[in-house]
Computed example of a mutant assay.
Amino acid sequence: MTLRNLKPWLFLSPALLVYLTVIFVPAVYTSYLSLFRWNGVTPDKQFVGLRNFIDLFMVDNVFVKALKNNLLWMVGSLVFIMGFGLLLAMLLNRKMKGRTAFRGIFYFPYVLSGIVVASGWAWMYNPTQGFINKLLETIGLESWTHAWLAEPKTALYAVFVAALWQGVGQPMVLFLAGLQTIPQEPYEAAIIDGAKRRQTFRYITLPLLRETFLIVVATTMIGSMKVYDIIYGMTGGGPAESTQVLASWMYYQTFRFANIGTGSAISLTLVLITLVVIIPYVYYTTKKSHV
């Protein structure tokens, strides 16, 4: 092999080394650990094969609840976070005073740490001194006040509202970038033809944003499946495990209960579910966009 043929590999080798060290090798080792029952301390590991995976789906009720919460979180993210992101992008794509400032204001929560957001919103949900209950009392809706994070029926939705506030900035910026690449000629022709705003949105904006939707939907799905920090910071998975998601339950099994094999099985299941959801979507959308 000549030096010219080796050059691409020489340039790729640092990134490849980092990838193998940080991602590939740990992933393979985690897959290996998922086949054992081990507490992470003793030198002996008990080989159990697929028993950890079977127990997750057949015995572990918290895992099933966490999986349902993850799927619910994904649907909510695709509908609300992505929907509000598109709405804000369309509003802030118009010519108006202060639109640059508004873009920064709406994007700012996204750059904050999840733990910072969790701490602030946990205080807002405080049942006695929190802003939300105080606001409801001020406007005469005392009957609506509530221990939002302490009741299993409302805790997950309360945390999702905080995640919505934080996460809407990312799809907004991506949609803004996509909207600014759309030429004005199709809209001008549609206006001449008498098309209404709803029709131009359906037949011009949405089709021309197909590539942007591919990126936004994929990143939103992945983010919803690996959500962890805001849940851990606001509820710790409680009350009564009602806000557990796969990432938080994996943490508890691995580091709190010292079930390394079970935690590894959860992490591998999380990766597989994400791949099952993402790969068909990306393949179908990419193939359709090239037809």
Rank of each mutant, 00 (worst) to 15 (best):
T2A: 02
L3G: 14
R4H: 07
N5L: 13
W9I: 11
P14M: 02
V18H: 05
Y19N: 01
P26Q: 02
P26M: 01
T30Y: 01
Y32E: 06
L33F: 06
L35D: 01
L35G: 02
F36E: 02
R37E: 15
N39K: 07
G40F: 08
P43C: 09
Q46W: 03
L56E: 00
V59G: 03
N61W: 03
N61M: 04
K65A: 13
L71G: 01
L78I: 10
F80Y: 14
I81W: 06
A89E: 05
A89N: 09
A89T: 01
M90H: 09
N93W: 05
M96F: 14
K97M: 09
G98S: 03
R99C: 08
R99L: 06
F102M: 15
G104K: 08
I105K: 10
F106E: 01
P109A: 01
L112G: 08
L112T: 12
G114N: 09
V116D: 04
V117T: 14
A118R: 12
A118N: 09
S119N: 05
G120R: 06
W121A: 00
N126D: 15
P127C: 10
P127G: 06
F131G: 00
I132A: 01
I132L: 13
N133L: 04
L135G: 14
T138A: 15
T138R: 14
G140W: 11
S143A: 15
S143T: 11
T145H: 09
H146N: 12
A147C: 06
L149R: 07
A150E: 14
K153W: 08
T154W: 11
L156P: 08
V159L: 06
V159A: 02
A163G: 13
L164V: 02
W165I: 00
Q166M: 11
P171H: 02
P171M: 02
P171W: 02
V173R: 05
V173D: 05
V173A: 12
L176V: 07
T181S: 14
Q184W: 04
P186I: 04
P186Y: 11
Y187C: 02
E188T: 08
A189D: 03
D193C: 00
D193L: 01
R197V: 03
R198L: 13
T200Q: 15
R202M: 09
Y203C: 01
I204D: 00
T205I: 03
L209V: 00
F213E: 00
V216Y: 01
T219L: 15
T219S: 10
T220Y: 08
S224L: 03
S224H: 03
S224E: 04
K226M: 06
I230M: 12
I231N: 00
Y232I: 11
Y232A: 13
T235A: 12
G238F: 09
A240N: 14
E241L: 10
Q244P: 05
L246T: 02
W249H: 15
Y251R: 14
Y252G: 07
Y252W: 06
F255L: 14
F255C: 13
R256S: 15
F257S: 15
I260W: 08
G261N: 08
G263P: 07
S264L: 07
S267L: 02
S267D: 03
L272Y: 04
L275M: 13
I278T: 10
I278P: 08
I279N: 05
P280D: 06
Y281E: 01
V282Q: 09
Y283M: 12
V291C: 05
V291T: 12
